[in-house]
Nucleic acid binder design. Structure first.
Length: 215
DNA sequence: ATCCCGAGGG
DNA sequence: CCCTCTGGAT
C-alpha cells in the first residue's frame, strides 16, 4: 500500500467523522434536473444555482420541454449563474440529444453522458453518483482539485489525472462520498484564499500545512 | 492557452 | 481592485 493510499484512507475517515453525508448540494427531483443544475454549477456557487432552478424547472420540467425552448428565454432564466450563453445553449442542445437519441431518458452510462454538449467527466460523475447511485469515478471540481493538490493526493492540475490519482488512493466503496467530503472541508476550512490550517482536522496529514500561498 | 461571464468576498 | 465559485469547448 502506498503512502498516498494510507494518507487518503486516514483523511477519509477523519473527514467522514466531521461532515454529515449529503446526497447533493443541488436541488432537483429528476436525473435530468440534476444534469441541468450541474451544467449551471460551472464556476458558480450551488447556492446561486438553487436560486434559479425552481423557476427554470417550473417552466421547462424535462428534456422534452427544454428541447423546444427559445435560446434567449433560457439565457434570461440562467443569467445570474454566469457563462449564461454557453450554459443555455448546452442545456437546450443536451436536452434535444436526450430526446432524439435516448428516448427522453437521461442516459445512465458514462459513455453516453459524455456525448452531451457541456458534459465532461465532472458533470457525468455527479449525475451517475448522485442521480443514479452508479459510482464509476470521482467528480473533480475546483474544490476537489485544490484539496487533492494540497493534501498531496495528486501532483497534477489536470482533472482527469487528479481523478485517476484519487481513485487509486481511496477505497472504492468510499469513492461516492469523496467529492462531498472534500467540498465541505474546502468550504469550511481549506478555503482557496486563506486556509484555516490551525483549525484543520487533517493538518497532521497535510504536506502543505501552514503554507499561506499554497498553490 | 484562451474564452465564456455574473455575483459575492476581501 | 483582484480572487473565487461543484467546468467545458476551442
Amino acid at each position: 500500500m502506498s503512502s498516498r493510499t494510507r494518507s487518503a484512507e486516514a483523511i477519509h475517515d477523519a473527514l467522514s467523522g466531521i461532515y454529515p453525508p449529503v446526497r447533493s448540494f443541488l436541488d432537483f427531483s429528476t436525473p435530468w434536473q440534476l444534469l441541468t443544475a450541474t451544467i449551471l454549477s460551472a464556476q458558480c456557487t450551488d447556492e446561486r444555482v438553487n436560486r434559479v432552478t425552481p423557476a427554470l424547472f417550473e417552466r421547462w420540467p424535462g428534456p422534452r420541454e427544454m428541447a423546444q425552448a427559445a435560446q434567449e428565454d433560457v439565457e434570461a432564466a440562467v443569467r445570474s449563474t454566469g457563462f449564461f450563453r454557453n450554459k443555455a445553449r448546452n442545456i437546450i442542445a443536451a436536452s434535444r440529444l436526450i430526446v432524439a437519441e435516448f428516448g427522453g431518458e437521461t442516459p445512465r452510462r458514462m459513455e453516453d453522458l459524455l456525448r452531451l454538449p457541456g458534459v465532461a467527466r465532472k458533470t457525468a460523475n455527479i449525475v451517475l453518483t448522485q442521480g443514479f447511485g452508479l459510482v464509476e469515478g470521482i467528480a473533480v471540481d475546483t474544490h476537489v482539485a485544490r484539496l487533492a493538490q494540497r493534501l498531496g493526493l495528486s501532483d497534477s492540475d489536470r482533472p482527469e489525472v487528479i481523478e485517476r490519482d484519487l481513485c487509486a488512493a481511496f477505497r472504492r466503496e468510499d469513492w461516492g462520498g469523496v467529492n462531498h467530503l472534500l467540498i465541505q472541508h474546502g468550504r469550511a476550512v481549506c478555503t482557496a484564499r486563506k486556509p484555516r490550517c490551525s483549525a484543520c482536522a487533517v493538518a497532521a496529514l497535510c504536506p502543505k500545512k501552514g503554507v499561506t500561498s499554497a498553490a
